[in-house]
Write a protein that binds this DNA or RNA. Sequence first.
DNA 1: ACCTGAACACCGTTCAAGT
DNA 2: ACCTGAACACCGTTCAAGT
Lengths: 201, 201
Amino acid sequence: MARRSDHSRDEIREMALNATKTIVERDGAAALSTRKIANEIGYTAGSLYLVFENLDDLIFQVNARTLSELAAELDRAAVRSSTPEAALVELGLAYFRFAASNLGRWDLIFGRGSPAANASPDWYRSRVLVLFNRVEKLLAELAPARRSNEVALAARALWGGVHGICTLALTDKLGIAGLSDAEPLLTTLIETFLSGWMQHN
Amino acid sequence: MARRSDHSRDEIREMALNATKTIVERDGAAALSTRKIANEIGYTAGSLYLVFENLDDLIFQVNARTLSELAAELDRAAVRSSTPEAALVELGLAYFRFAASNLGRWDLIFGRGSPAANASPDWYRSRVLVLFNRVEKLLAELAPARRSNEVALAARALWGGVHGICTLALTDKLGIAGLSDAEPLLTTLIETFLSGWMQHN
DNA sequence: ACCTGAACACCGTTCAAGT
DNA sequence: ACCTGAACACCGTTCAAGT
């Protein structure tokens, strides 16, 4: 035992992050453990502590990648639309569809698998907040006269709302039949909100 | 050891549910364990399985009580208002304040401590859904001409939204300073949504 | 220098054994 | 009949020991 050097630190880090993705998408976020990750990459749990601070640190690094994927997905969705209203609806639907097709990793960010909120490092918190920028930009286009802190408030209110429908729908707490039925809820929330938002312009 | 009969089954159940409440509010939902509950009430973990199916069952029973408390709080909040609009805002604020002052038990329902969604028994799911009734009733008052499934859709969209702001604010993911800053977000979401909702009446 | 495997302090759950 | 305590199969994390 000991001293294998089959892989560099960076290679082990890469393998561990990928293994985590595989495990949570296959078995769910609750099934994740250091022993399982280590087993998946052919090392022992102790080795992970040479590359990561602890399991929470590892999870934050997985989450950072997931958030980048989500951001790319949102950008793709937004360009499909000609009006800001349509773009916001597309953004909401893309947010939900990403969550629905990556439930394990979604849970690692917002659900059962996620570390306690007060443990988030700053670099991670800013990665979450950057998601609001897209929404702020579109809301500002719809109401150029509004002050920027009004726009920031509205963006957080609307996007918090979108997020809530996603989490409740994905944890089956909305009393709707299937996942696809969440989409009319998102459309209703966004369109009704925007219609109120533009009214007081 | 064995055979104490100090307490009836119902008394043990009561003690365990209360101990759980104490533990999660004091140490957080993540700190909950059967051994800790048992210790708190002077029994061993095994005894809990004479009264509960398992830990999830116990948690669902705690959650049912928490939801009843929340429902009572929402009723108290709604009567303070003269208009349906104001009542919905009060409802949203009461929902948030209840969550903020009972974070441990909130987490046991919607957060890290909660059992997997697919494990919810039917009696429990209906307890969650009944929360929407109040919102539906008020939305219907505001738009008597709307069909009932439109109202149901809007109630879920709006309340999902309120819920999302609460969860993001309580887990510190909205980029707002303190907890009190979540309240303007809720007011903005609800008022803007209602203004859009009444416009297309 | 790198990695292991045992150890520590925990989990939820089951159940033979004791009164 | 009631309850315990040991057992089983797990956790995250640390670190002496081996190469």
